[in-house]
Amino acid sequence: MVGLGAMVGAGVFAAFGPAAGAAGSGLLVGLGVAAVVAFCNATSSARLAAVYPQSGGTYVYGRERLGPFWGYLAGWAFVVGKSASCAAMALTVGSYLWPEYKNVVAVVAVVALTGLNYCGIQKAAWLTRVVVAFVLVLLAIVVAVSLASGSAEFARLGIGADAGPGGILRAAGLLFFAFAGYARIATLGEEVKDPRRTIPRAVPIALTITLITYAAVAVALLALLGPTRLAASPDPLAEAVRVAGVPGLAPVVRVGAAIAALGSLLALILGVSRTTFAMARDRHLPTALAAIHPRYQVPHHAELAVGAVVAVVAATTDLRGAIGFSSFGVLLYYAIANASAWTLRPDEGRPPRMVPVVGLVGCVVLAFALPWTAVVAGSVVLAVGALVYRLRTG
């Protein structure tokens, strides 16, 4: 449920427009490419999480399998990239609920959900169940209404001349932003019952449900709006129900988008704070962030620090820029996960050899296919992190 809450969230309401702008009628191919890379990443992550059921995800895997620097770089990429993703989720809430004051609403949402996570993961998981159930029902209604409309034309699903390879890869990189929630499962290794059994089962189940959901929504939006109108729409799902002749559903979709974004934000803050906690425990970040609350048994200092950083970013950042920046950091994070999975032995549950290879190559290709602003900004931030590591370790 935590993984679904992170994946079936704001991405489905916000990512298809930019992806259609990049790939045109090749959007479905881009979705397929993103899904293949996500599957490889999820498989590698699940096998590693079963061997290392600790908080921190690829930060731990990279450290144990490739060396301290690669673990640190993975953790740095994750914390930076997912902090931007948290800000994007918060801004989605503000954009749908109160566009004129979207930054203020975003900050309020961050503060509220940080407080919820502070009180313990069990309460957060129960809220995630409610959010996921609501969003899945809402998306099913939107898909059904769209496909039943007389305005839907399935000829729009064909790949036209506007779908070049570069655009398809760029769309896949942007859509990957919405698939990356399975990392939340792996980063909670120390708080899951029977992690060696639970995590390898939870990851593919969450990813499969998400892929089916996203494919259905993508088909409905393309058939009803077409790639050009989809790319130009700031609220494509609300636009779809209006075009389908059910404008009364549009306010419900807006509220649903805000709830979905809150669900994603809840899970994202959870995952980023756990990786921050793991890095602080290993003295790569201030050790005060490794404190555990005596009553709630959560890394409360890390929770508060992440919440504060995300609140500042949400007050000053741009939504679409945050999506690209987040995708770059998270794709490189999973590149290190796949390289780590390659080193697993057969007795450690090593995945088929092609899985980490395809995952590693796919992550690097999609990362550098993103808009150049995201590539440059992400490369600079990662270089700064690497420099800090070298200076600190000599």
Score class of each variant (00 low, 15 high):
residue 212 I to G: 14
residue 50 A to M: 09
residue 394 G to W: 13
residue 238 A to R: 09
residue 352 P to A: 13
residue 141 I to E: 11
residue 262 L to D: 08
residue 12 V to F: 03
residue 175 L to E: 04
residue 30 G to I: 02
residue 46 A to N: 05
residue 17 G to E: 01
residue 204 P to T: 00
residue 133 A to S: 09
residue 258 A to V: 00
residue 207 L to E: 09
residue 49 A to C: 00
residue 15 A to T: 15
residue 375 V to W: 05
residue 135 V to I: 15
residue 73 L to E: 09
residue 339 A to E: 05
residue 364 V to D: 02
residue 143 V to P: 01
residue 269 I to E: 13
residue 24 G to R: 06
residue 358 V to N: 03
residue 334 Y to I: 08
residue 55 S to Q: 12
residue 51 V to C: 14
residue 87 A to Q: 08
residue 311 A to F: 11
residue 256 G to Q: 03
residue 306 V to E: 06
residue 303 E to P: 04
residue 132 V to C: 14
residue 317 T to I: 06
residue 342 W to C: 07
residue 155 A to F: 03
residue 27 L to I: 12
residue 224 L to P: 01
residue 362 G to Q: 05
residue 300 H to T: 02
residue 276 T to A: 10
residue 115 G to Y: 12
residue 65 R to T: 10
residue 66 L to F: 04
residue 58 T to H: 00
residue 93 V to W: 03
residue 150 G to P: 06
residue 93 V to I: 05
residue 280 A to K: 12
residue 74 A to R: 00
residue 350 R to N: 05
residue 377 A to M: 15
residue 189 G to M: 09
residue 162 D to A: 04
residue 51 V to Y: 12
residue 29 V to W: 03
residue 203 V to F: 02
residue 364 V to H: 01
residue 183 A to Y: 13
residue 267 A to C: 12
residue 313 V to Y: 08
residue 28 L to G: 10
residue 384 V to K: 12
residue 139 L to R: 03
residue 274 R to I: 05
residue 78 F to L: 13
residue 262 L to S: 14
residue 325 F to A: 01
residue 170 R to H: 07
residue 121 I to S: 08
residue 359 G to F: 03
residue 237 L to V: 06
residue 268 L to T: 10
residue 109 A to V: 10
residue 104 V to R: 00
residue 311 A to S: 15
residue 350 R to K: 14
residue 180 A to P: 04
residue 109 A to R: 00
residue 390 R to L: 15
residue 92 T to H: 12
residue 119 C to W: 15
residue 272 V to C: 07
residue 173 G to R: 01
residue 120 G to L: 11
residue 304 L to G: 06
residue 136 L to K: 02
residue 43 T to C: 05
residue 333 Y to C: 06
residue 196 R to A: 13
residue 82 K to M: 03
residue 62 G to A: 02
residue 217 V to N: 11
residue 304 L to M: 13
residue 136 L to C: 06
residue 135 V to N: 14
residue 127 L to A: 13
residue 332 L to N: 04
residue 206 A to D: 01
residue 380 V to G: 00
residue 219 V to K: 07
residue 188 L to S: 13
residue 316 T to G: 02
residue 7 M to H: 08
residue 263 G to W: 11
residue 24 G to C: 14
residue 132 V to E: 14
residue 149 S to T: 02
residue 105 V to W: 09
residue 344 L to V: 04
residue 330 V to R: 01
residue 340 S to G: 01
residue 133 A to V: 02
residue 206 A to G: 04
residue 168 I to P: 11
residue 47 R to F: 12
residue 24 G to Q: 08
residue 154 F to G: 05
residue 169 L to R: 03
residue 199 I to K: 12
residue 275 T to K: 07
residue 214 Y to G: 00
residue 302 A to Q: 12
residue 338 N to L: 06
residue 375 V to P: 07
residue 235 D to L: 10
